[in-house]
Amino acid sequence: MNRKLNLWPARLDLLQSLSGLALVVFVWCHMFFESSILLGKDAMLWVTKMFEGEHFFGEPYPLLVSAIAGIIFLLVALHAILALRKFPSSYRQYHRFHLHMNGLHHSDTTLWYLQVITGFLLFFLASTHLYTVLVQPDNIGPYASSDRIWSGRFWIMYALLLLSAHLHAGAGAYRLAMKWGPASLTGSKAARHKLKTAMWCIIGFFLILGAASLATYMKLGYDHRDHIGERYMPSSHQVQQE
């Protein structure tokens, strides 16, 4: 049959989920790279260098980092615009949802609301963070980051970002599974229960990982507070210089 279906609703829905998925994957990977500081300053530096392409090209191109940040920024923007369609769009809607949620005491409904709030926060926090990375791609590294976090007092923002990003990402991943199938395929309550437990475990894991890294950065930043701006030299270099 030859007729015009409006396929945009399907595309937009798919795009919303795909952008969300991409972001989740990114954020989770990012956590491992970023927590390399736990393995020591050298490890962190190595990762930084990797992103700047030094391991491949022999010298660093911080612009690469800017490029990644730019792409991620666009992704966030796309996702945010699509997801914004789902926000309560008037006071009436907001009010009705609130009434509904407060009476219902239903965890998945509350979880969605949490996503709305954290999404809203991420809108600012993630943008700020990405902006920082975008304009100062070369300002990443064991000391540079630590200085920013401690002396630049970015830790407050990071703590918030950490919390909202992971609640949002964890809940988002669970929602994706329920929304598109894998978990809802079996239709069994047990599968859903397992998935939800997994979600909380993952969120917990990343929050602990992130908190530990943040604490490490803060400690480093505190110790390094008198030498702001000084860059970290890999320990191998240091040995050679001595």
């Binding site: 609703p9 399907a10 937009l12 829905d13 789902k86 219902l104 239903h106 998945d108 409904t109 969605w112 929602r175 329920m178 929304k179 598109w180 199938g181 809802s184 395929l185 079996t186 239709g187 859903r192």
Partner: peptide, 28 residues
């Protein structure tokens, strides 16, 4: 595509219909 996967439907359906499964299926 309006369904935001809040899952209240599935949890409160007195007939225990597999609503989430069906909605996911239709969405695909």
């Amino acid at each position: 595509f309006g369904c935001m996967t809040l899952l209240g439907c599935e949890d409160m359906c007195p007939k225990n219909l597999p609503l989430a499964t069906q909605i996911a299926f239709l969405r695909r």
